[in-house]
Design a protein around this nucleic acid. Structure first.
Lengths: 205, 205
DNA sequence: CGCTAGATTGACGGATCAGTCAATTTCCAG
DNA sequence: CTGGAAATTGACTGATCCGTCAATCTAGCG
């Protein structure tokens, strides 16, 4: 079966693209950089992919669908909203832990690029935001979070915080190691949960 | 004095650049787009600026230094750490309110672009993070925030949240209007403050 | 009114690359 | 072993666009 070998080669080109995109950024990456990283002639890239953009799109969608699946799975199998939020944070942080290059491309080149590629993938991105918003709503219904903050806003806070940690690691503003990864996961969920806890008592004013 | 007219022209070109960058993103913007937006021949752009990049750099640095100045001023003139944090959030949100195009460029093209331009301006960006971290430390010393969370991490949470709101408005994921701007300012500061409040009592465990 | 310095123009050079394609090699099925 | 299909190559094309520059214009000074 030649198709298996072909699939392998395709995959190895996609991995080379990931590495190059992560290193130089999408715009500064040349198709020939990707080809030589993969050890092939640059014409071959076009045998497997339509364009440079297609590689980025595929890269992003593949990873993002894993996130969506992980969150859907968490929604099914876990009990409390808090566990579900933790699972979402953990998935993203661990994705960075084990494949920093992929996540760097996903975050920097797509998620945070409101112009260009962000626009194209808005529907997928929004789906993730909505899933987290739904976790928040579950927490609100259980009385674990205040209901006068919209779940959409809460979801923004959550993603903003998580992505900023990733950016901090990518920028090397903040040390990136096992301990920090675990600390960050917990800090984000904990802070959101405390920060959005129901107002205990309407005292005074 | 011809130099005043020249300065005006320079300024109008920079404003045209802002508009074009905001609309199409830096990479997709052509110098000729900027020139025609400003109503001049594209050669003239090079009379006033060295390159397309220089325009972006100047644009960013000009605005970012205003933020740094506003935070330094807040640190001097305001009493409580909470007021200082509020002032920082307000400055950023209001900058977007009154000049969305400038802030869109600042956030999307520089602050969130870890590759390319983010790197160049890291020192300035870091200065802002450090200022917020210092506000957090003041809150910690007053016992208003828990001290077992590093001020650096707290600062990341703060900027992550604020920037995500801006992104939400830019992406049009979330409505952008007067009410939302004010709500967002308050929500971010409030959530951080509650989320990082001192742990009331070390119960159990 | 003429002169000069600076402002302004836009044609042009030159470099870069994405993507194509005809030629060649490799692979394997029969 | 062989024929053909798929994989692979890299020279080439075509288009884009940044930045230069010589030529022209304009403003205001003496």
């Amino acid at each position: 079966m030649a198709s298996e070998k072909a699939a392998d080669k395709r995959r190895s080109i996609l991995e080379a693209a990931t590495k190059v995109f992560a290193e130089k950024g999408f715009h500064a990456s040349r198709v020939s950089d990707i080809a030589s990283e993969a050890g092939v002639a640059h014409g071959l890239v076009y045998h497997y992919f339509d364009s440079k953009e297609q590689m980025l799109n595929e890269l992003f969608s593949e990873r993002w669908s894993l996130l969506l699946a992980a969150m859907a799975e968490a929604d099914e199998s876990l009990e409390t909203p808090r566990e579900k939020l933790s699972a979402a944070a953990a998935f993203i942080v661990d994705s960075y832990r084990y494949q920093p290059e992929v996540m760097k491309v996903v975050i920097v080149e797509v998620t945070r690029a409101a112009n260009s590629f962000g626009r194209i993938h808005l529907p997928e991105i929004t789906r993730a935001y909505d899933q987290v918003a739904s976790f928040v709503e579950q927490a609100q219904q259980k009385g674990e979070m205040r209901s006068d903050v919209s779940s959409t806003d809460a979801s923004l806070l959550f993603f903003g915080a998580v992505e900023q940690f990733l950016s901090g690691w990518i920028f090397e503003l903040v040390p990136a190691n096992e301990e920090e990864f675990d600390r960050a996961k917990e800090l984000v969920v904990d802070t959101i949960y405390r920060g959005l806890a129901p107002i205990s008592e309407p005292v005074g004013d």
